[in-house]
Design a protein around this nucleic acid. Structure first.
Lengths: 222, 222, 222, 222
DNA sequence: AATGAATGAGACTTCATTCAT
DNA sequence: CATGAATGAAGTCTCATTCAT
């Protein structure tokens, strides 16, 4: 993916690439390396070699390895954020459409790749102990969570549904996303992106049948 | 938890503690260390210090760090295996009861602890890349998966249900387990063990209502 | 002290500030950095940041770090040289007055500051091994030393004193300067510039009582 | 000097050398390296190579380079302390004899070597900024200083001398020690250990002539 | 003149592993 | 069985220096 960026320089080109481009390049290389070797196996060398740059450059742009990892996590979180915000911001979207956009964002081809899921779970593996990582994406996570709750509440109230509290449903959704992600990561031959979305949408359809259509039967729950 | 095992020898040092006890002691210390410092932060020193033993001992019992990690993962997998097998083997259990036992095993107080979930996800974080870990527990996982499919098929056929194929339902269950686990690990104040089980059972009840009772409404999906 | 020199250019940047001014600016920043962080802790960055200039500039003006350090040492040595030469060159000065000027120069407020003493001893700490530094200031040191011997000889001969050879007295003086300097540097609350001079003058007075007045008793030896 | 300690091992010998011996060995190698290359030029490699050991060993025995340097400084301070304490503790010593022992300790062949003076001034060069070093030896320094004051007071009072306050004399002594040391270090061909002691004793003799004999005239002040 | 991104050697430090006792 | 001193490869980080702009 970042092949096009690598070594795009002639003798004069390299130095003129904007600072932001370099950072992006290094972050992409970091994602590559984590996906391939895990966080533990990701070294400054593996990153800079992957980017076709010298090892000293990371310090220049990110100061420490820890900072590089944090920026990488943030990059993914922001990318995801952009993904659902785009649809959410669009005019003329109903609450149900907005909620579906959030669900869909989790399984969008740009977001839900083996490569990026690897990185998410690499961080989750560390996040159990490192509050640093958790607090980094807390704001972004919280925004999505609260937005989800608001949408669910709107749907429930407008549809006259009974059932679990919106907060409980939102928690259920989070859990579904993660479960699907992990299994798509670990068993990509068994679990597919599209089925992931159907899976989650089926859950919503079972709760709010007049707002969400049940996906094709066989896709139900996978 | 392993305090009672540590340094149980007097000044003369009964050096005859069974080999198995030492191994167990080291594995528990490994779990502790991974839960506290992650896999990357777990060193031979952090493990042996936690066990109150000398660093040279690990070489004797596990040969390499890699082996120690693998044995630790196997230990957790086997412990979980024992958990559901116990109920499964008991006489006079219906298919539904056996399936519920498998579900329940994932949320048993001995299995579903922050400490152990930490370790699971630490390994998952690595497993994205390391087939070693995946293949290690493949047999155990497969057994549970196939057993689950068989039970679901029995339930479905005996109840005259239509709906997704047993394999799809089993995949859905796996995904639900993992999603709950991750969220119990990351947000223990929001997600609870018992709700986790209810969550999954509600899913089964929605598919096979005559075999599974729907849990208390509010517990549905969390 | 070099605040007035820093970034004195407006937005358009009068880039025509004399070369000598830039060099001076960088040398002062070097002194600052050595005083604050030691020679080992002084980096091209710490110097250029202190001067409010870019790191590339040092290469232009000093070629290497080693050269910058050498020029800094030379700068201090020359400054000191100017200090005593001024009085020495003045007309109508007796030998005793000229010698006293040399002594006084060591404790002059412009010379004998914590900041500059730091730098001297930072270099002395290295000089034990680096003949480069020693040879750099050798000429300047030798001139002062020979001048001192000549003055002492003149005083001794004109006064009919017996006692140590002029060379020995000059060596004694050097030793006294350094001892006072080090202690003023390390324990500024105990040792003061003025007492330093009195200390040395008391020594000369004890040798050549008819040429030098003994300082106030209590100031003797500190 | 530590050649005798180096590589004294047969195949089995090395590992049995006591821990304290290893530390001593590494400290001696550190002194060597600082004397030869300065503190800035002293690396973990230069130390361990000098000791004929592997680079990883320093971490085992000293944890960090900083700690190694601190222990080295402490070692020198303690060695000096032992030196004057020995004479000071001996029975039947007069105050004057005890004071002379302190003076003599500064110029003892074991203490006053180029090699060790190098190290002292390397640290002094850093001490201007690093309070760590100063505080390390503060206790030892203070003890010597206070002891010196007490002895001077005893001498002065018993001899009915007038003159500077004991504290001032003690400060003067400190300054003389340092001045001599620096010049012995920088110009060993001009300054000698023995002359150093005579120099300082001449100072004491000038203050307390009935307690201290003036050294041979030509040795006076060098 | 001046900037600052880029390089890469080399420093410190960590840590799995070995092995004499 | 057990210890822990010793090794050395590998990692992170620093920093003098270069050079296109």
């Amino acid at each position: 993916m970042n092949e096009v960026l690598k070594k795009s320089d002639g003798p004069t080109g390299r130095r003129t690439e904007a600072k932001a481009v370099r950072r992006q390049q290094l972050i992409e290389a970091t994602i590559d390396s984590i996906a391939r070797h895990g966080i533990g196996g990701t070294t400054m060398s593996s990153v800079t070699e992957g980017a076709g740059l010298s090892i000293g450059l990371v310090n220049f742009h990110f100061k420490t390895k820890q900072k590089l990892l944090e920026e990488t996590l943030l990059y993914l979180a922001r990318e995801h954020h952009e993904q659902w915000k785009k649809a959410h911001r669009a005019d003329g979207q109903s609450a149900a459409q907005k909620l579906e956009a959030i669900v869909a964002s989790h399984f969008h081809p740009r977001i839900c790749t083996q490569r990026k899921l690897s990185v998410w779970f690499a961080f989750y593996g560390e996040a159990g102990r490192r509050d640093v990582y958790r607090s980094l994406i807390e704001d972004i996570d919280t925004e999505r969570f609260e937005t989800t709750i608001a949408l669910i509440r709107e749907i429930r109230d407008s549809g006259g549904y009974t059932g679990p509290a919106p907060r409980q449903v939102a928690l259920g959704l989070e859990s579904l996303y993660d479960g699907m992600w992990l299994n798509i990561l670990l068993y990509p031959s068994e679990y597919r992106r599209t089925a992931g979305k159907d899976h989650v949408m089926a859950y919503l359809a079972s709760l709010y049948p007049r707002h969400f259509a049940t996906p094709a039967p066989d896709a139900r729950w996978i």
